[in-house]
Amino acid sequence: MKKNLIFGLAISAALCIPAFAALKPGDRAPEFSAPASLAGKQFHFSLQAALKKGSVVVYFYPSAFTGGCDLEAHTFAQDKDQFTAADASIIGVSEDSIARLNQFSADPSFCAGRFPVASDPGGQIGASYGVTAAPGRPGMKDVRGVAIDHGFFERTTFVIGKDGKIVAAFSSKSDHLAPDAHVKKALAIVQKLAHK
């Protein structure tokens, strides 16, 4: 009896493992809501509400005010009108605090008040998408010299169709994409969706 119970628990655990793997096209995107910032003002972002307006690009990034993330945010801000023309919205997600994101979202060199970024300090949203976060290194500082005290998500982008299903998923690690290439690839996909 005890062996059967242990075997059953082992099988159950094995069956649960894929739920934590990175999501792929065709999977339903996990719904989430989170504190977010747009142009330095905090609000509550809801994926469900955003999908009512069209497709959504959800991009996970390591940290505000770091080289690659700054480039990626700046490129999204520059291309924002093209995303809007394709009926697509953008939401960046990191483990940054909302206070850091208020500064990052308003900074004209980065998000420039053009799109929101959400705070996922415990990494629960990332985990639901199968995006892992590495612990920050002690003493690490951002480009402003401010200490970074949170984990770093693997740079991963998801394009979610209006139906709530993932259309595309790609990461810097597996797809060898530079931060600004994430933006260009996501834009090409949402433009294609808009013409269907």
Rank of each mutant, 00 (worst) to 15 (best):
I125G: 05
K53W: 03
A29W: 08
G54N: 15
Q191V: 06
F152M: 10
F60T: 04
S109N: 13
H74I: 05
A134I: 02
H182T: 00
K173F: 11
D79K: 15
D87P: 05
F152T: 04
L101H: 01
S97P: 06
L71K: 07
A134P: 00
R144T: 12
Q82E: 08
T132G: 12
K80D: 09
A49M: 06
R155F: 07
G67Y: 10
T156Q: 04
G126W: 01
A127N: 11
Q191A: 07
G8L: 11
S172L: 01
L177F: 07
S105I: 03
V143T: 13
G161K: 08
A19S: 15
E95M: 14
P30W: 02
L47N: 03
Q78C: 00
F104Q: 04
H182I: 00
R28S: 07
A88H: 05
M140Q: 15
G68M: 05
D96G: 02
I6V: 15
I90A: 01
A34W: 01
A106I: 02
A169Q: 11
E95R: 14
P25Y: 10
K52F: 09
A14Q: 01
I90M: 04
I189L: 09
V93E: 06
G8P: 00
F83H: 02
P30H: 01
A29D: 07
V146K: 12
K41R: 12
K141L: 08
D79I: 00
S46P: 04
F20G: 06
P108I: 15
P116Y: 00
A147F: 10
S172K: 07
L5Y: 12
Q78A: 07
S174G: 05
P135G: 06
K192S: 15
K2Y: 09
F170E: 06
L23C: 11
D81L: 14
A169V: 07
A147S: 13
F76T: 03
I6A: 14
L71W: 02
A13C: 13
Q78L: 08
S109A: 11
M140W: 11
D27A: 15
P116T: 00
